[in-house]
Simulated scan of single mutants.
Amino acid sequence: MQLIQILAIIFAVFAISRVILQVRANAMSRDSAIFWLFIWIAVILAVVFPNTLGYLAILTGVGRGVDVLIYLAIIVLFYLIYRIYVKMENIEREITTVVREIAIIEREKKEKKVKL
């Protein structure tokens, strides 16, 4: 086993430990944890069994196993960016709603003071 493979396995195990700790601390949902555990276990399997990527490359018609890995990584990154974008849009909508509600409450308070 080469040094890069050992480092990749160590990093993946570290990442798995972080996922588990975040689930225990209720900082990550179970769905997200399952997704990330799948990703990091796939990384370990790809490092331990590098020929599998070669078979996957043949199966998909891509030249090399590393190319398949890069294509999959790009697809996953685009998916994650999409999810972040959707969450940001929802947060912006929620903030707008809260700010409007606060403005209405503040206006009502001012109107009550003026009537007194």
Rank of each mutant, 00 (worst) to 15 (best):
M1C: 10
I4Y: 11
I4A: 13
L7F: 09
I9H: 04
I9F: 04
A12C: 10
A12E: 05
V13G: 04
F14E: 06
F14C: 05
A15G: 05
S17H: 05
V19L: 05
V19M: 02
L21Y: 13
L21D: 11
Q22V: 06
V23A: 04
R24P: 01
R24G: 08
R24M: 15
N26L: 14
M28K: 05
M28A: 03
S29A: 06
S29K: 08
R30M: 09
D31A: 15
S32M: 10
S32Y: 06
I34D: 09
W36N: 04
L37D: 03
I41V: 15
I41H: 01
A42P: 00
A42M: 06
A42L: 05
V43S: 02
I44R: 00
A46C: 05
V47G: 01
F49N: 12
P50F: 00
T52G: 03
L53R: 00
L53F: 01
G54M: 01
Y55G: 13
L56F: 05
I58E: 13
L59D: 10
L59V: 12
L59Q: 09
T60L: 12
T60G: 03
V62H: 02
G65F: 02
L69V: 13
L72H: 02
V76D: 07
L77E: 11
F78T: 10
Y79H: 13
I81Q: 05
I81L: 09
Y82L: 12
R83H: 10
V86E: 11
K87M: 11
K87W: 14
E94G: 08
V98C: 07
V98F: 09
V99W: 02
I102W: 01
A103K: 07
I104Y: 06
I105S: 15
R107D: 10
E108W: 05
K109Y: 12
E111G: 06
L116Q: 10
L116T: 07
L116V: 08
